[in-house]
């Protein structure tokens, strides 16, 4: 039996909103030691999502037997919208489940709502992603990155990212003209989360599809900062750290013809 209780429903609500536009059907893997993990690839095979919710992400977590919960994220989103952000959220499944039980309790315990969601058999490819060495790592406020990704998409379908020792340059070029945004490394002593950190082994020049970057920045509601790991000509990693877990996106680059 699986019983995972979140201190507040808002984490799951934000997670599902962040990924449901990229992937529709996902297998949630549940185990006592690993908690809940998920790997899903978008239909175009360009963007991969990897989620880890350690047992420590939960107020209470119990999973007697490893389980795979195949869920339609559209449906899960509909159910999660029924609960308030500050409600307790508990996910419950039997050992060979046909359904996932989703229970919301308001903190005053005078309202309990229960939903049963049908599970699906989902046949999906799982890719083996080893820890990669990257040419550079950038950590910046997730809202800053979201703004650049959204703004630059209005200029072009592609966003070029150039990283040097102390700055990151985002460039877009399209039918109406060109644009660039330069972000410089700095340390904010008052608020560390506002700092911009660049670790560089080698300068990087990579291009990504703006559409995918706009999907990725939907996760900026989950973490105040995002870490972007880039290497020339290989997929980039975008990581949003959660308390006791992470949401990672791997994005295949675009190459010049």
């Amino acid at each position: 039996m699986l019983e995972g209780k979140f201190e507040s429903a808002s984490l799951m609500k934000r997670l599902v909103e962040a990924i449901k536009d990229s992937v529709k059907l996902c297998n949630f893997n549940c185990s006592q030691t690993k908690g809940i993990t998920l790997q899903a690839i978008d239909d175009s095979r360009v963007l991969l999502i990897s989620l880890k919710l350690d047992p420590g992400c939960f107020e209470g977590f119990r999973c007697d037997k490893n389980l795979v919960l195949g869920l339609d994220l559209e449906s899960l989103s509909k159910v999660l919208k029924q609960g308030n952000n500050e409600d307790y959220l508990t996910l419950i499944a039997e050992d060979a489940p046909d359904n996932l039980l989703v229970v919301f309790e308001d903190p005053k315990k005078d309202r309990i709502s229960e939903f049963s969601l049908k599970l699906m058999d989902i046949d999906s490819d799982v890719l083996s992603i080893e820890d990669m060495d990257h040419d550079c790592s950038i950590t910046l406020p997730s809202s800053d990155f979201a703004k650049v990704a959204r703004d630059m998409r209005t200029l072009s379908e592609s966003l070029q990212i150039l990283v040097t020792k102390d700055s990151v340059k985002f460039m877009a070029s399209g039918p109406i003209g060109t644009g660039s945004v330069i972000i410089k490394a700095h340390t904010d002593l008052k608020d560390g989360k506002e700092s911009i950190k660049i670790d560089l082994n080698k300068s990087v020049n990579v291009t990504f599809g703006a559409k995918y970057l706009n999907d990725i920045v939907k996760a900026s509601t989950l973490a105040e900062t995002v870490t972007i790991k880039l290497t020339n000509k290989i997929p980039a990693l975008f990581e949003f750290k959660l308390q006791g877990g992470y949401l990672r996106y791997y994005l295949a680059p675009k190459f010049d013809e």
């Binding site: 690839i41 175009s44 963007l47 890719l127 083996s128 290989i234 295949a252 675009k254 190459f255 010049d256």
Partner: peptide, 14 residues
């Protein structure tokens, strides 16, 4: 113009 690559050309299936 630039071509979109696929993750499948970088990562193997498990």
């Amino acid at each position: 113009a630039s071509n979109q690559t696929s993750l499948m050309s970088f990562f193997g299936k498990k």
